[in-house]
Amino acid sequence: MAEDQTSPAASASDLRRMCRRSCSAVLATTAIGHKQVDDGWPVASMVVPAIDLDGAPILLISDLADHTRHLKADARLSMLFTGSDPASNDASRIETDHPRLTLFGRAIPTTSADIRNRYLLANPDAAQYVNFGDFGFYRVAVEAAYWVGGFGKQRRLSGAQFIVDDCQALRESHDDILDHMNTDHLDAIADIVAHQTGHSKQPGWKMKSIDCDGMVLGTDLTGSLPFRIEFPQTVLNPSDARQILVEMSKISRA
């Protein structure tokens, strides 16, 4: 797909990180059997996605929702991400120069335990309703991405350019990496947290998840909120992850 070569453009990893930072997204579907508009109308709704290890959005949605009925009839969708946390001050008003990303894809139903775990890691509150009979998981097969970074800044990517397609080894080793880091290298995690964020080393930071673009860290303390630390480059396998973490640890202790 063509892209504007005259303007600064975000990398694919930058765009995946924008999605990972977003606590919500706007979902656009095509109306089927809607009570207020005719079939074929575009319908927008708010969803709380998670982002899979490779960058694909994951949805947990109810059969009772209009957008789920629409997707069952026509799996095509688009999703708008701004990278904003609704609780943060910068989400109260979206300026015209605020970066935004639209993903185009198809919602694929899945019963994968891995998808379920990824979603609940990102959205632990969903445990309250994840087992309700009307809720189901969907993984979005991304076919295209369109980024606008402000006036004169844009980029268009294919799904193949956006999604990391060769990270199966990292996916299969995900839990082993977490176990290893949280058993043998809590000191390194604490050093990285202190260097990257300014947080104290003391609360007992642990790695909660890892993906191709970064890792989520948190503690077991009540009320403690998890946060991301991005990697300086994309990782595809345990060896890549180890190398990045060793480098980050050395920098944090320098």
Rank of each mutant, 00 (worst) to 15 (best):
D191G: 04
C23K: 09
D125F: 01
H70Q: 15
V216W: 00
Y138K: 03
F227G: 08
K35T: 09
R106T: 15
R16K: 06
A169P: 01
I244Q: 01
V148A: 00
D176L: 14
M181K: 11
D90K: 02
M215W: 13
N182E: 00
D187H: 04
G159R: 11
N131H: 14
N89R: 13
A107G: 11
K35H: 13
H180C: 06
P124S: 07
F135T: 06
I251H: 08
V48Y: 01
D220Q: 11
Q161T: 09
E3G: 09
M46K: 13
A2S: 15
V142S: 02
H195G: 10
D165Q: 07
L64Y: 07
M18R: 04
K35D: 12
D63A: 06
L80E: 02
V193F: 05
E230Y: 02
S45V: 00
V235Y: 03
L103T: 08
D90H: 10
F135K: 07
G83I: 04
I244Y: 00
C23S: 10
V148D: 02
M1T: 15
A145K: 01
D52P: 03
P8L: 14
Y129N: 15
T222C: 04
G223H: 02
L178Q: 11
G204K: 01
S62W: 08
E95S: 12
D85E: 06
P203F: 10
